[in-house]
Simulated scan of single mutants.
Amino acid sequence: MLIVPEALIASLVTPEDAFRAVEACFVAMARGEAYNFPVVREALGGGRQYGFKSGLDRAAGQLGVKAGGYFPGNAEKGLINHQSSVFLFDPDTGRPVAMVGGNLLTALRTAAASAIAIDRLARPEAEVLGMVGAGHQAGFQLRAAARVRRFRRVIAWNPHPEMLPRLGAVAAELGLPFEAVPLERMREADVVITITSSPAASLMAAHVSPGTHLSCMGTDTRGKQEVEPALVSGASVFTDEVAQSVTIGEAQHAVTAGLIDAASITPLGDVLIGAHAGRRSASEITLFDGTGVGLQDLAVAAVAVDRARERGLGVDVGV
């Protein structure tokens, strides 16, 4: 078994690698060649969450699980709040293949999924990017979105405004003007990315203009919520996996309220393989409910393992 520690991941997997791996994962899921196992998610108290996401991709020959969660307060210890590890197994024998640091991989695959949704669903002429959230993941989201659309400027809101300058620095790196705004001004955005860990909605239907695309990437646990149900029900909803969308994703609240049902939600992979048209009009609001599926973690971890083996990196423990 090869151990690929977190410290090596940045030199092994690029954002472009993650984009291609996640895109292939969406396609395999849409074709019925890959599926996720039920998510295990537990509250540990004090806002801490821990769980397991796993699956099997027959097309790619990947079987495995990501173990990890969210630990608020880690910043005080010099750590990021999201901590995880990915374990890969031989799908034919069950033997362990690799253990891979999952923190950067999670950030890269989450941003890649959002960017793929923007690429396929946002209006081609989109110029203004709105960011709701300014935590660790927000910078990855901003960089990934800027690869698929030529944005002219970025507007942003965060419940803790003192965090916004860090996101503004990322925008500056990309050559994009940046402005902190109240939520009401999100109506100026052509694309909105929500990436918060919130138990209550912040973005309302009144904050979003016709024709906007939303990538809602922060809700991955029962009880979390970034946008109000009326906004979800008024949009054409796409997701990484419908089963997760209606139980732990952003759509859970609209489903509970009886505003939408699972049948009205489209897997993004269907758009990639041409089974669904995606956006149908310039005035349509599209919403991608990015719940984060285990198959994406396996896909990017496999890239890291292949690169590590090619370069003679990592630690082989011979299991």
Rank of each mutant, 00 (worst) to 15 (best):
F140P: 01
S11P: 01
R31P: 00
A98T: 00
R166M: 12
F26W: 02
R309P: 08
V65Y: 11
A263N: 13
P91S: 00
G249C: 06
T239E: 07
R31E: 13
V13Q: 13
L298E: 01
V227H: 02
Q225A: 09
A171I: 02
I265A: 00
M163G: 05
G102K: 08
G130N: 08
L63R: 01
S283Q: 11
A67P: 00
D297Y: 11
R95L: 13
H276N: 15
V305W: 00
G312P: 10
I3T: 13
I80M: 04
N81K: 02
K53P: 08
L214V: 06
P199K: 11
L231F: 09
Y70W: 12
N81T: 13
F238M: 11
I9R: 06
K77E: 12
F71N: 09
V86D: 05
A111V: 03
G61L: 05
N158S: 15
P267N: 10
A59N: 09
P199E: 08
Y70L: 10
E6R: 06
L183M: 11
A172M: 06
G258W: 09
A122C: 09
R309C: 03
P229L: 05
E127D: 11
A200W: 00
N103L: 05
V305N: 05
V246S: 00
T266Q: 10
A43G: 15
P199S: 14
E125G: 13
A111G: 15
F87G: 00
V246N: 05
G175N: 11
L259P: 01
G130M: 05
L56A: 02
S245L: 03
T247I: 01
S233T: 08
V13S: 12
S236P: 04
E241M: 03
A180G: 14
S283M: 04
V208K: 04
G168P: 13
T239D: 01
S209R: 15
M217A: 14
R309I: 09
T196G: 10
E228W: 04
M99G: 01
M29I: 13
R187Q: 12
L142V: 05
F288Y: 14
L298M: 01
Q244P: 03
G68Q: 14
G223R: 01
V315S: 06
S202N: 02
R123E: 12
V13E: 13
E76M: 06
G68Y: 15
E16N: 13
S54R: 09
A251T: 14
N74S: 15
V148P: 07
P199T: 13
E127Y: 07
P267M: 09
L298P: 02
V65K: 09
P38M: 07
R222I: 04
G274R: 04
N81M: 02
G211Y: 02
L44C: 14
L2A: 04
A275C: 04
D220P: 11
S264E: 15
S283L: 03
G274W: 00
F52Q: 04
A75H: 14
S283W: 02
V27D: 06
R153K: 15
A122L: 04
A299Q: 03
V100W: 03
F140A: 05
P210L: 11
G78Q: 03
A59K: 12
Q49N: 15
V154Y: 06
G68W: 15
N74P: 15
P161K: 07
F238L: 10
L174G: 10
R109H: 15
V300L: 12
M99W: 07
A18K: 06
F52W: 03
V13C: 12
T106P: 10
